[in-house]
């Protein structure tokens, strides 16, 4: 059996004195695509931010790439270089004077050959033609692909996304998911993403974490996305809505 890339045991996270996530345990296998689903306010963003060292945790353990993270949450340099995290929405304003290639270059580590790595990353994500455009001029789909180039310009092992398809039209969302799967297969990346898009989870993910402050269930999509489990996670109203939506 392969060693887990990430092992979480009995994790508890509090924010402003209130426990937001409690007793969460799971493991990510290398090369897997894991989705975190759950209602708003379930602690999904809090959980993934703690996993990548952006938030401290109060109880339990996080073992990432063979290193046990300190409770303060700061990732050691050698771990940080192998992990990329993308927040839900960038706070970019209207005419931010930053070109696409300048931005992607910022994702390089000090040992990276920028002259080769940046054009290669832009090519891989099919955004070479955008390299001189301003980051603020890109459409939602283009921006997500550029952000992926930023994340993968330096070889990583784990990509963590907070709702990567927010604001994308269905076609752009599918294209982004296909690119993610391509990266996962070609480069052996492990993906952990928060999402509300259950149809995409059914198609692409091989493991699902159902979170509502604690883990309601976890497992492959065919088990976790059953009517009973979704009703347990979101409540009866959500399943009724999904049922009427499909008919």
């Amino acid at each position: 059996m392969t060693a887990s890339l990430l092992e979480v045991n009995d994790l508890c996270i509090a924010r402003a004195g209130h426990e937001v996530v409690s007793g969460v345990s799971f493991a990510l296998q290398p090369g897997s695509d894991t989705a975190v689903i759950g209602p708003n306010g379930a602690g999904k963003s809090t959980l993934v931010q703690a996993l990548v060292g952006l938030l401290p945790h109060q109880g339990g353990t996080i073992r990432l790439l063979g290193h046990t993270l300190p409770r303060s949450g700061r990732l050691p340099r050698e771990v940080r270089d192998q992990v990329a995290y993308l927040p839900q929405k960038l706070l970019l304003d209207g005419r931010f004077p930053l070109s696409v290639s300048e931005f992607v270059r910022l994702g390089c580590s000090p040992c990276c050959n920028r002259r080769k790595a940046v054009p290669a990353a832009l090519e891989r994500l099919q955004v070479s033609h955008l390299r001189r455009r301003l980051l603020s001029e890109l459409s939602g789909g283009e921006l997500q692909r550029v952000l992926l180039a930023f994340c993968t310009v330096h070889p990583r092992k784990l990509l963590v996304f907070d709702e990567p398809r927010t604001g994308l039209d269905p076609q752009a969302a599918v294209q982004l998911q296909e690119l993610l799967q391509q990266l996962r297969l070609q480069e052996g990346l492990t993906i952990l993403q928060i999402t509300h898009d259950l149809s995409m989870v059914r198609r692409s993910s091989d493991w699902v974490l159902c979170l509502n402050r604690s883990l309601c269930c976890q497992g492959p999509p065919e088990h976790t996305l059953s009517r009973e489990e979704l009703e347990r996670l979101y409540g009866r109203d959500y399943v009724l809505y999904e049922h009427s939506h499909h008919h």
């Binding site: 931010q49 990548v52 060292g53 952006l54 990732l75 340099r77 940080r80 990329a84 995290y85 993308l86 927040p87 960038l90 706070l91 970019l92 931010f96 930053l98 300048e102 931005f103 910022l106 994702g107 980051l135």
Partner: peptide, 15 residues
């Protein structure tokens, strides 16, 4: 400076 201006959370995740 650039990363903080783009997004402070993204900047923190890059150390």
């Amino acid at each position: 400076q650039i990363l903080i201006s783009v997004d402070p959370v993204l900047a923190r995740s890059r150390g």
